[in-house]
């Protein structure tokens, strides 16, 4: 009876070691995958950030002014004038 118990104990040990190895391998694998995904996300976010920044730089007021001055003859753009804006009071709508 005692022998059976000892053998079963040994078997349990071995199976535990094997299963722990499998699990640790799986964890490492998943971690690597997670790292890769993180790196891709990071790269994409950085790209998005750069594009966003690039867009803001390209549409900055100073740049738009330069473009507007450059194409003034064809586009005839000018700053908004107060008299061109109609202010509607809430009472008027009611």
């Amino acid at each position: 009876m005692f022998k059976v118990f000892v053998y079963s104990l040994l078997l349990t040990f071995i199976s535990l070691i094997v299963s722990n190895q499998i699990i640790s391998h799986e964890i490492k694998n998943q971690t690597r995958k997670l790292n890769n995904i993180n790196a891709v996300i990071q790269h994409e976010e950085n790209k998005e950030n750069l594009l966003k920044t690039d867009w803001v730089v390209r549409t900055s007021p100073a740049r738009l002014k330069i473009l507007s001055d450059k194409h003034r003859s064809t586009l005839k753009l000018s700053p908004a004038k107060g008299k061109n804006i109609k202010f509607i009071k809430l009472e008027e709508i009611r």
Binding site: I22, I23, I27, L34, N35, N38, A39, Q42, E45, N46
Partner: peptide, 21 residues
């Protein structure tokens, strides 16, 4: 339980946290 539900591993290793975007 770890073998059957690996998604339930609690806590992300610090090395991954430090690489957040």
């Amino acid at each position: 339980s770890l073998a059957l539900f690996p998604g339930d591993i609690r806590g992300i290793p610090r090395s991954i946290v430090s690489k957040t975007v």
